[in-house]
Amino acid sequence: MTGRDGGADIGPLGDFDPVVILVRPQLAENIGTTARAMANGGLFHLRIVAPRDGWPQERAWYASSGADRILDAAQVFETVDDAVADLHRIFATCPRPRHVVKPVMTARGAAAELRVASTRGLRTGILFGPERAGLDNEDMARADTLVRYPLNPKFMSLNLAQAVLIMAYEWFLTEDMTPPRELMTNETHVATKGEMENFMSHLIRDLDETNFLRNEQKRPGMVRNLRHFFTRGEVTEQELRTLHGVVSELSSARRNRS
């Protein structure tokens, strides 16, 4: 089975990128939305263990929002053992405390380990359990490491695709170079200190002409306050041009009234 329109051109398919393994998923729609979540985070290898309603299922493709190629290439296995047989390291998501002695990591920590394993040429997989109850102890016994998400302890309820999306997002961040903070300036630019000083001189000159700064004792502090106000953020050159126009217009209006 293939997607109705072929789906989005997603990839590349790294040989050592983590494999998402859905264990006994119950609904086709959840498999489809899982593929959608995977594509968002750059994970493209999907394995399905004993899907309740069999495979393939047309509804999964309809729910994938174009992540068809992930579903087209999905592999189906009868058991978890079969699904992980060719992998070197297995992580298992574990939403509830279990009586299991294993390392437990956050999604961020697990993603970092997955990235290291990938660079070493190790094949890895992440187990996600059935929608209703999650992985059982037998499933987790196949894993080297458990993954638990630090969520609101009073409400830790994720659907399958959400759980996969968290891991996919953290995986993507391990190589993403997007700065944590940036200013969208469009066609202008952040004002230089020279441009800012030019505006401040304009403003102070006009304020002196209006006698707003007539108190000689308070004048230095008032000027500093104005300078702090305008230099507190990243004012753009376009915004400074607008402010120049405002100051000039106010001055012109004042002179016309005189």
Rank of each mutant, 00 (worst) to 15 (best):
D9Y: 02
R89D: 02
A163H: 03
P97Y: 07
M177F: 07
G66Q: 06
A28C: 04
S201H: 11
R108I: 00
R132A: 04
L114I: 02
G6W: 05
A63H: 05
Y62F: 14
M167W: 00
G11S: 10
L43P: 03
A50V: 07
R214L: 12
F77T: 02
P12Q: 10
F199P: 06
F91V: 03
L160C: 03
N256A: 15
R254E: 11
Y169L: 12
F16L: 15
T145S: 09
T192N: 07
V101G: 01
A107S: 09
T119K: 07
L151F: 01
E138L: 09
T2F: 11
S157F: 11
D176Y: 11
M196G: 04
V104S: 10
L151H: 02
F128R: 03
F230Q: 07
P180F: 05
A92M: 07
P51E: 04
G233K: 11
G32F: 11
A92N: 03
V164P: 03
T210F: 14
S248V: 10
A8K: 13
R59D: 11
L243D: 11
E175C: 12
A111W: 00
L146Y: 10
E249S: 15
E78M: 04
V19I: 05
I90P: 05
G3H: 05
T34D: 06
D208P: 02
L173F: 09
L240N: 06
R148S: 15
E58F: 14
V164G: 02
A74C: 08
Q162R: 11
H202A: 09
V19L: 01
F172H: 13
L127M: 08
E182C: 14
A133N: 04
G245V: 12
M156L: 10
Y169P: 02
W55M: 12
